[in-house]
């Protein structure tokens, strides 16, 4: 019974990681950028939800505002900071992403101070507990898993079946060839950022409901772990990000439940390192051979 409840716990955490990892993975797939600002967009999302709820006390509005806010923010970042660097060396792009990440953290600290604030988690998802057999499952767990799975199914449909999804896949396969086929690279990249940050917005609300505290550094650890999840699954691969997210979530809960909570983060990285050494491209990553 304990095992089952821990499993559900892990699935909840894993589905949040998966949502965030998808954002990393899609952006990496399309412009080969490790988007360090992604975690901080999630942090900003937490504040958007907090502020909107405080102003309107309408949970639905808060969720919508978070998602819209994340999308607008991510698109603005892409246009202002990443677009001018399309032709630049990739490390410059990486440093820019780090700069944006620092900027968001410090801007949040400036606006909302460095103190942690309580997140109205129970107002957004009521704290109801269901009892199934001897097992008690809270509504927020069910909502988290359901929303995440629904988003992933929708994303898969979008990427596999729609024209825009086809364009995204084409650009990540070969940017120049896609351009020659008449695909608008810039709008495809922007669209990828929209999707990634949309998922980040959802992830933000769900994460804050699980750990109901918002502070300017919330995004860094979540971002780092989701990033590990994306790499574990094979960065650039959408199903890989989902698998990696669940794997990291479950592993983390497992390590905590066997009494190694102080070592959890180290274990997460150790899992990643061992994985990369055995299969350097992750679970589902494409291996690239270099041609001379």
């Amino acid at each position: 019974m304990l095992f089952l409840s821990q499993l559900i716990n892990g699935l909840q955490l894993g589905s949040i990681y998966a949502l965030v990892a998808l954002g990393y993975s899609m952006v990496y797939g399309i412009i080969m950028l490790l988007n360090f600002a992604h975690g901080d967009i999630i942090m900003m999302g937490g504040y958007f939800a907090l502020v909107t709820y405080a102003a309107s006390s309408n949970p639905l509005l808060a969720v919508v505002a978070t998602i819209v806010g994340c999308v607008v923010l991510a698109v603005a970042i892409e246009k202002v900071a990443y677009k001018p660097l399309r032709q630049a060396p990739r490390i410059s792009l990486l440093i820019t992403a780090i700069g944006i990440s620092l900027f968001l953290q410090n801007a949040a600290q400036l606006i909302w101070t460095a103190n942690s604030r309580a997140f109205p988690s129970t107002s957004i998802i009521p704290s109801i507990t269901f009892k199934v057999g001897g097992l008690s499952i809270s509504l927020s767990v069910l909502v988290t898993i359901a929303v995440s799975v629904a988003s992933m199914v929708a994303l898969t449909f979008l990427v596999q079946k729609t024209k825009m999804g086809k364009a995204m896949r084409a650009v990540s396969e070969d940017t120049e060839a896609a351009q020659l086929m008449g695909i608008n690279i810039n709008s495809t990249i922007t669209f990828t950022f929209v999707i990634g940050s949309f998922l980040a917005g959802i992830g933000s609300v769900l994460y804050c409901c699980r750990y109901p505290v918002v502070n300017p550094t919330l995004g860094s650890l979540l971002g780092l772990k989701a990033f590990v999840a994306a790499v574990l699954g094979g960065i650039g691969s959408i199903p890989g990000a989902v698998v990696g997210g669940f794997a990291i979530g479950l592993a983390e809960v497992l390590f905590t439940s066997i009494g190694l909570s102080a070592w959890t983060d180290a274990m997460v990285f150790a899992v990643l390192i061992i994985m990369l050494l055995i299969k350097p491209t992750g679970f589902m990553g494409r291996s690239m051979t270099e041609k001379v």
């Binding site: 060396p89 820019t96 620092l102 410090n106």
Partner: peptide, 18 residues
């Protein structure tokens, strides 16, 4: 100061990527 620092970083990278 940290906000300025991060903005400077982004600006330098945009205008002088090398």
């Amino acid at each position: 100061r940290m906000v300025i620092y991060s903005v400077l970083l982004v600006i330098i990278m945009i205008f002088k990527p090398s």
